[in-house]
């Protein structure tokens, strides 16, 4: 057991409950940008709870990382959503009841484990936490440190290779067709590329029927 002042207890429950509420709001709002930033709010609340649990470095670095990550999340939301602000309410949910049941069941099961399981009672000493982490990283867990670097490098290369539309050898999507933004011009603003491969014939057949509700997208070219 660790004795804590009342103010710390109050803050713990306030930010803990706030993190769950903002997490819930992520799926309840229509605006995709708001959803991203509710998720960020959930992370920041968890960050404050980590702070109260004396993991000071972890808490601050979580907030630092998630700020960038959620900004990117918002960008991708606006890139891929037909209706990023939820101006025309639409239902983007499937198997809703089963999902709610799954969520509740998971909560009950995990919560029961958390509340009723017996964990060893070995509280930590809250001093020199960052220093201990560094020593561990350079000592016994050195392999974690270096393999994290290698994993990050692999992710960088894989993500770039997958997502980049243009590589050293020209456009990556040569032979496929541009997204059909305009219903009158099924192949988008650009004329269809002259390279006609087998892949294009397949993709063209199934792509053109999607997204008829897209309107004029001219302003995206201004950025």
């Amino acid at each position: 057991m660790i004795e804590t002042p009342l103010a710390v207890d109050v803050a713990f429950w306030f930010f803990g409950v706030a993190s769950v509420v903002t997490a819930w709001l992520v799926f309840r709002t229509d605006s995709m940008v708001r959803a991203s930033f509710y998720l960020l709010a959930s992370f920041v609340n968890v960050g404050v709870v980590l702070l109260l649990m004396r993991a000071e470095y972890l808490s601050l670095i979580l907030i630092l990382m998630m700020a960038g990550e959620m900004a990117i999340m918002a960008v991708f939301m606006v890139m891929f959503m037909m209706n990023p602000a939820g101006l025309n309410p639409m239902n983007m949910v499937h198997q809703h009841r089963a999902s709610v049941a799954g969520g509740v069941a998971t909560f009950v099961a995990l919560g029961a484990v958390g509340v009723f399981a017996r964990f060893p009672d070995r509280p930590a000493r809250p001093t020199g936490v960052t220093f201990a982490l560094g020593q561990e990283l350079l000592g016994e867990s050195m392999l974690v440190f270096e393999s994290a670097g290698a994993a990050l490098l692999a992710t960088m290369i894989a993500a770039i290779a997958l997502a980049s539309s243009r590589g050293r050898y020209g456009q990556a999507d040569d032979g496929s067709d541009a997204p059909a933004f305009d219903p009158d011009r099924p192949f988008g603003d650009a004329p269809p590329r002259p390279v006609a491969s087998k892949h294009e014939e397949q993709a063209g057949k199934e792509g053109a029927d999607d997204m008829h509700d897209m309107r004029n997208m001219d302003h995206e070219r201004m950025a």
Binding site: A23, V26, F27, S42, V46, G102, G103, G114
Partner: peptide
Amino acid sequence: GALLIAAALFAVGLYGVLSQQ
């Protein structure tokens, strides 16, 4: 308390994964 909140976060996330399109 902390594990309870963590379970709630996990459950909300699972709900989102299962229900969102």
